[in-house]
């Protein structure tokens, strides 16, 4: 099946959700860099098939870079076993096993984030519709969607605050660590409070537009699985289950 054919098929959003679940499960169950690299390669191929620029994933990974570095270093130092590569005095600091575990953790995060990008290849309306047709209550589906929408808003809000601070002439890079921590501590609660205020305004706006005004919702459009959706879902689920069983045994 060529990439062009697969794009032309316009898979159901629920099929893509299954794909994301399968890829994420594999990322969680595998613990060697080699296998995780294979899962990452498969994810990138899927992103290309659905015409998502894989280089854009880097933009989404950027905020997590420091977290990934910290996790990598911690795993490198505290994972026991393997050949010692670096010692500080009598203490073995880095082992080859530590390096493998550290790289696995980083790769796992990359796979989960890259796989989640598949969810951006369809509209938010389809996301909610897909969950509702899976018998997820509409309120819950809508909450999940809003939660997902709030993550980038929170990130944007944090970037705005950092920009606003710099526009007051404060060179954050040159501020001593102690003062920097004080500034961040001062900003934390207003930032959270600002987000809560936004959530409250959203709730009011939704109520004003009749959210949950009637107990039963009707939908103009219905998502329908076609044969390809069934085949892809079955294939992904079967392969994932088989790989998990192989890994466990």
């Amino acid at each position: 099946m060529s990439a062009k054919e697969m794009t032309a098929m316009k898979l159901d959003p629920r099929t893509k959700m299954v794909m994301v679940i399968c890829l994420s499960c594999l990322a969680l169950i595998y613990n060697t860099p080699g296998r995780l690299l294979l899962v990452l390669a498969a994810t990138i191929v899927l992103l290309l098939i659905f015409r998502f620029d894989p280089s854009a994933v880097f933009g989404y990974l950027k905020p997590f870079l420091s977290l990934m570095l910290i996790l990598f270093v911690i795993q490198c130092i505290f994972s026991p076993g393997g050949n010692v590569l670096l010692t500080v005095g009598p203490v073995p600091l880095v082992t080859d096993n530590g390096l493998l575990v550290g790289s696995s953790v980083v790769l796992r995060i990359i796979v989960v984030i890259a796989a989640a990008m598949l969810l951006t290849t369809f509209s938010s309306r389809d996301f909610i519709l897909g969950l509702v047709q899976w018998k997820v209550p509409y309120e819950v589906a809508f909450m999940v969607f809003i939660a997902l929408r709030f993550l980038p808003i929170f990130r944007e809000e944090a970037i705005n605050v950092i920009t606003a601070i710099q526009l007051r002439g404060i060179e954050l890079k040159k501020v001593p660590w102690g003062q920097k921590m004080t500034i961040y501590r001062q900003l934390f609660f207003p930032l959270i409070y600002g987000m809560m205020q936004k959530a409250q305004q959203l709730a009011v706006s939704m109520e004003a537009r009749g959210f949950r005004a009637y107990p039963r919702r009707t939908y103009l459009r219905r998502l329908n699985f076609n044969l390809t959706d069934y085949v892809v879902m079955l294939l992904f689920s079967a392969v994932t289950l088989m790989l998990i069983l192989l890994q466990i045994t």
């Binding site: 705005n160 605050v161 920009t163 606003a164 601070i165 710099q166 526009l167 007051r168 002439g169 404060i170 060179e171 954050l172 890079k173 001062q186 900003l187 609660f189 207003p190 930032l191 600002g194």
Partner: peptide
């Protein structure tokens, strides 16, 4: 110039003032 260097020379007020407000009190 860094953003802070520009900010110390040019005072900028956004169209949406909320974007510039991040402290706990008005005086702060």
């Amino acid at each position: 110039y860094s953003l802070a260097e520009i900010g110390s020379r040019i005072g900028y007020v956004f169209q949406k003032p909320d974007l510039l407000l991040f402290c706990s009190t008005v005086a702060e």
